[in-house]
Design a protein around this nucleic acid. Structure first.
Lengths: 121, 121
DNA sequence: GGCATGTGCAACCATTCGGTTGTACGTTAT
DNA sequence: ATAACGTACAACCGAATGGTTGCACATGCC
């Protein structure tokens, strides 16, 4: 499975860049939302006040970031959310937090030394 | 505690924007890394080939995003990582994935149906 | 066929970004 | 006091962003 293939720096740049826009986060959220179904680009565009082309470009950015896939269906393109990429982004953040916690357990040892041995983790 | 205060759209824009750069992710990673200690701006800058001013601006971006804090100490500014913000970013991604999973449980019900529901929307 | 719809793409524009160099200023060291 | 260090900030530059309008083209409907 391709699931755990970790992303290049450029991939991560694109991923977080794609998430760094309120409109794009909203598009992703609505695609993933409970009652929501995959929607065509124009259906998505109808929700926002900007031009169709602007929304189309947002979707393109999301697609390049891998957060979304586009599937041709007749004359329209059906857009689906891809939670896999979300998970990968989350994994990176978790890894960073993990580094932090590892650092802390080491710090705890130092702080715990002079006095109460409390508990060893 | 301020832990669960959820961030504004602008805050999230800044947060993910800050993470959307390899150099900045590297800075955060090194600040959080196991053996690492809080470092001055120039110490951090020494690790990269770009100018000091460039790194200083990266740190400023990280600080505005809340991923890092700067504390004056003599003539230098000590930079520390802030895992709290990391956790908040992760929480948003988790929430989006949560939406997805909720959607799936509904979809599962549909798929588990003996035959395709004829109701066309 | 002819027309409306859905999409993509190019050109353009203002703003922001990531980088540079240079300057100013407070702090530390000699 | 003077020099060196650490930081901040401004001005500038090329490239990328986020938006616009307009046009081309394929598909679906009469």
């Amino acid at each position: 499975m391709v699931a755990h293939a970790h992303l290049s720096d450029a991939d991560l740049d694109r991923l977080f860049r794609a998430l760094a826009d309120t409109t794009r986060r909203d598009i992703v959220a609505r695609l993933l939302a409970k009652g929501a179904e995959p929607a065509s680009v124009s259906t998505i565009a109808a929700r926002y006040e900007m031009s169709f082309a602007a929304v189309q470009k947002h979707v393109a950015v999301l697609e390049e970031a891998g957060l979304v896939t586009k599937q041709p269906k007749g004359r329209e393109r059906i857009v689906r959310g891809n939670p896999e990429r979300l998970a990968q982004a989350r994994a990176l953040l978790a890894r960073l937090e993990g580094l932090w916690r590892a650092r802390f357990s080491q710090l705890d040892a130092v702080l715990a030394e002079p006095r109460t041995p409390k508990e060893k983790s």
